[in-house]
Computed example of a mutant assay.
Amino acid sequence: MNPHQRKLSRAGVAVAAALALSLSAAACGDGGDGGSDGDGDKINVGIKFDQPGVGLKTPDGSYTGFDVDVATYVARQLGHEPGDIVWKEAKSADRETMLQRGDVDFIAASYSINDERAKKVDFAGPYLLAHQDVLIRADDKSITKPSDLNNKKLCSVTGSTSAQNVKTKLAPDAQLQEYGGYSECLTGLENGVIDAVTTDDSILAGYAAQDQFRGKFKLGGFKMSNENYGIGVQKGSELKARINSALEKMVSDGSWDKAVQKNFGPAGYRNEPAPKIGTIAK
């Protein structure tokens, strides 16, 4: 190769290197929408919008509850600040579809792990062991065990399986009342029209912790079922392992206990210890 050719060759290498560098810089600076793993990217999270203490959208447009605190902690461990989170309502009947369609990155919405759901989505966790329970008036001494619900007016929401479970398995003579929402059940309980309200103890504790109900109700503590709350992700998603690591850290650094006390403490909720990741209570 003559000197003139060597100069041309070196010039070509320099141009190629400069082009590669500029392309690399452009790629690094691209904020795009193509992922949820970097700072500044949005992350879509499904929660309940109508469960005080668990997942609630407040009138001022903010979000509160235990699931919200768990999801916010997890998102931060995945590299997202609270302002990066796009909260989406995950109604019970829609959760699997939302994950399968990719509408959300993960769902934390009082989402009990069971075999049927696990065929369609993957679960990180569990992060809370809840139980079906009843809420009664604070001064009620007549209901101390599930069978005491016989001949009592038992309320749950229309279409719920919770009240049916009590009526078929534990108190066949309970007088089942179905209302449109748990708030209506609690109003009935407060006014003496209803004797007990049943669903997951975490949900009951969240309602009872609201300012207008504080001190008026108590949980029965009956533990009529095990409800393992998990964080739902798409089948095969690598987020499952990363979320499990985040949940383990949340427990170890004390943030989990703080979230329980903050959201359920006012109702006297005797929560189970944080469950071991991957261990499902039957």
Rank of each mutant, 00 (worst) to 15 (best):
H80Y: 04
C155A: 14
A171C: 11
T158Q: 10
I85R: 00
Y179G: 07
T97D: 13
S112N: 09
P82A: 05
Q164N: 11
D115C: 15
S62E: 12
Y111D: 14
V121L: 12
A93Q: 06
Y63Q: 03
E81D: 12
T161A: 13
A130G: 11
R76I: 02
A171F: 10
V86F: 06
D50V: 14
V157R: 11
N165T: 15
Y63C: 03
K152C: 00
K145N: 14
L128P: 13
R101L: 14
K88S: 11
A108Y: 02
V68F: 09
G55W: 12
L154Y: 07
K57Y: 01
P52Q: 13
W87C: 06
A93M: 06
P172Q: 06
T158P: 08
D173W: 01
G102C: 13
D122T: 15
V74N: 05
K152T: 00
S162V: 00
G125I: 04
Y179E: 09
E81T: 14
S112I: 10
D60V: 10
V68I: 15
I85Y: 00
V74K: 06
R76L: 01
D67A: 05
I47G: 01
D148T: 10
A71M: 06
L149P: 05
D69P: 03
A71F: 05
D94F: 11
P59T: 00
D60Y: 04
L99C: 00
I107Q: 04
D60K: 08
M98V: 09
K152L: 00
Q175F: 01
P52H: 09
F49C: 03
G65Y: 06
V86T: 07
G53F: 02
L129Q: 08
